[in-house]
Design a protein around this nucleic acid. Sequence first.
DNA 1: GTGAAAGCGCTAACAA
DNA 2: TTGTTAGCGCTTTCAC
Lengths: 331, 331
Amino acid sequence: MPTIKEISAITGVSKSTVSRVINNDPKVSEKTRRLVLDAIQETKYTPNIIARSMITGKLPIVLIIVGDILSYHFAKPVVGIERVLSDTGYMPVVYNSMYDEDKEQAFLDMAKQFKFAGVIPMTAIGSEQLARTFHDIDIPVVLINKKIKRSRFDAVIADEYEAGYLVTTELIRCGSHRIAYISGPNINSRINREREQGYRDAIIEQGFPIDENIIFKGNLDIASGYEAAKKIFSDPSITAVCTNNYLMAAGVNQYAAELGKRPLENYDIGCCETVSELNSGDIIYAGPDLQLIGEKAAELLLKRMQGSKEPLQNITFAVENVHNPKAAAFV
Amino acid sequence: MPTIKEISAITGVSKSTVSRVINNDPKVSEKTRRLVLDAIQETKYTPNIIARSMITGKLPIVLIIVGDILSYHFAKPVVGIERVLSDTGYMPVVYNSMYDEDKEQAFLDMAKQFKFAGVIPMTAIGSEQLARTFHDIDIPVVLINKKIKRSRFDAVIADEYEAGYLVTTELIRCGSHRIAYISGPNINSRINREREQGYRDAIIEQGFPIDENIIFKGNLDIASGYEAAKKIFSDPSITAVCTNNYLMAAGVNQYAAELGKRPLENYDIGCCETVSELNSGDIIYAGPDLQLIGEKAAELLLKRMQGSKEPLQNITFAVENVHNPKAAAFV
DNA sequence: GTGAAAGCGCTAACAA
DNA sequence: TTGTTAGCGCTTTCAC
């Protein structure tokens, strides 16, 4: 691996001048620039980024932390981030925490230690410890779908209330007025709260009553949707189910299938987040464009990494997709 | 951020000794070790990995390159890799190429430049250029599901033939003997070839004829499965479809749904790869345990990163999962 | 068992 | 416009 020193030796110019050429310093004569550039070409020299980062104090790597790489919800924004970051010289890489806070902690520490250029966390922040790590992090951060109290970071968040409201409205439009709801486990979760509130408001606004007995609580996984479905389908007056997330809806469908019931045929089913193309065939949903969210976050991060001192941005994404496979029937 | 220098100043010992303590050099007296360790604790000192890597020439990062982060096929092994690498001091990160060879090339170059400790590519290698990059890469590499001619790397690959054979056998077991097949676009692809051969052999072994007219070619995406399905369902003698990958099977199901046909009810459907839990409800498949593949690859890589000079390993993974939701009916 | 000194490859003043 | 010097934080001889 050739170094700046060898280039210097070959061309006869000093290491500094070679460095200047590499970094496009304008005050280098065209002649020496050519000379150096030629030598670089011949030797296939590439600058040692590690050595450089020792001085600049930054490694041009952007760390994206996701809670679950297997989930569309996390994976899709990554595609957006990568789109924006490609050709900027920054290297976006993904770390998958599987919701393990200790691992997130460890990676955040690493990001600091490695002096990564930026971090985009899309993950659950819970513990005090983790909050503290965020508090005294000294590299640019853009949060996705996460609000930290008194945060110093830009954030891009989805309008969860609107998602809950719109999907429920759609369910009503399909003819239901007794719609069960399966929420997440954590009452304090903003996302959970807002989605449920959207559901409630939609029902009330359409002039129907809220029945607290058909609002259930799940763990956001398939199994808990399945469990809740047992109770839901024992009440024949319920004609539709709205779930916080897709996984629980899948659980509901699973139980329904065992009963010989088909989604969007024998009952309506909806959820408050964007569903992958692969699974959206028989579910109603409302949610943001996940790729766009990633793109926006990357744009904000890019500005910060380039030194922007603009005031904090807190962007709320409207629901772009209201997906209803049955819509054709009554449009 | 405290440095080795400050620890040296606080304790009164030299930088070298501090370095020795950090690196567990045995020839340090218990007394000074304690002294230094205490100072490290107090100041919350952590060694600067970048500076260290300038000397050792390696950054303890393992790069996993995947073709499509949205695909279970790529994402699941990542979970396995991370499981093995956790607590080894190596930092596994994922890069998603979206099948873009230029990007893969760029990342491979970066991995070299950054002196990453290792690379696990799970992606399509095509161009001469990319092959050359692999040829003169100087860091440990373990390939997943990829064979490179005269490769210098360990590899973990799935038994594609067996997958094709077993899923077809299962389809036959369900009562079909006229089974359409949808292959991938590339005849030269090993995976494509072997899966199809498995299909052919299973049919022949059960004493049925191969009909070349019901073997179609797709692009591995939903749309091409959908297109092929148009022809398939125009032939009522066909009672089952076997596809190379899951996406095309989803396309078949999509078209079938428009016809009012239900999978595993009005026709049987299978594919030659492991399907995510989320989507395996109404499809038959055979495939390896994807997480295990990731784990095995990470184990091999770990050994190499630790300097092992064992002979090359080329591990073929047997099909661990044969999934048939209808099986209960006749077991 | 410990310290001094050199140096990894690069950038960033400061001179010239 | 170019070269010289110092130094980023660490490891690693080589003495003592």
